[in-house]
């Protein structure tokens, strides 16, 4: 019953490296600054990472904000598995935990954090999940890589890097917390 989808993605490591570890570090620095600037010091704000890698990114952003501005912006986790629109078609997915900072999302500015923005379906699911948990004051989206091919009217408020891709390519984000190293790798696709 445990389907391959539950196992760790093991992509071909020979793909094209788009971003290296220090690129990712600089990008997160920039996004942290942008958040502080755009939210005017981030009052009543929380970061909610979307599993799997969004959770680590949300944590890293919270660390940076603490370092840059001596501000505690709480970070949590928002599992969207039960809100996916492909549950019927795809193999079984394990549920992840949803962990909200104390006080919940009511009247908060919630910044959703994910690694890759693609069709927008994940963000759609996250918005639905969020609104079943309470009523945030506003919702923003921070993303490490925007690879295009949107299928829904969704855009990110904070974008690390725009990477034009073909649909048959795959963008894999590697993070030390899960993979032992930081990188963004482009794999698959026809010869270009």
């Amino acid at each position: 019953m445990v389907s391959p989808a539950l196992r760790q993605n093991e992509e071909d490591p020979s793909g094209k490296h788009i971003l290296a570890a220090d690129d990712i570090g600089r990008i997160l620095d920039r996004i942290a600054h942008q958040i502080l600037e755009k939210t005017k010091g981030a009052p009543d704000t929380m970061l909610l990472g979307i599993p799997t890698r969004g959770v680590a990114l949300a944590g890293r952003l919270a660390d940076r904000i603490r370092r840059f501005a001596d501000l505690d912006v709480p970070a949590g986790t928002l599992d969207i598995t039960l809100y996916r629109d492909d549950l019927r078609r795809n193999a079984l997915r394990a549920l992840g935990p949803t962990e909200l900072p104390p006080g919940g999302v009511d009247d908060q500015r919630v910044i959703l954090v994910d690694d890759v923005l693609y069709s927008g379906r994940t963000v759609r699911a996250a918005l639905n999940a969020l609104y079943d948990l309470g009523r945030p004051a506003s919702v923003q989206l921070a993303i490490l890589v925007d690879r295009g091919h949107r299928e829904l009217p969704i855009r990110a408020d904070y974008v690390g890097k725009n990477i034009p891709t073909a649909r048959d390519e795959n963008v894999a984000v590697r993070l030390t917390e899960y993979d032992g190293f930081d990188a963004v790798v482009l794999t698959g696709g026809r010869e270009r």
């Binding site: 039960l82 992840g96 935990p97």
Partner: peptide
């Protein structure tokens, strides 16, 4: 996970 996902939510219902 189901118990955790529903307990204490504003809308005790998952889609």
């Amino acid at each position: 996970q189901m118990a955790d996902a529903v307990t204490g939510r504003e809308v005790p219902k998952l889609p």
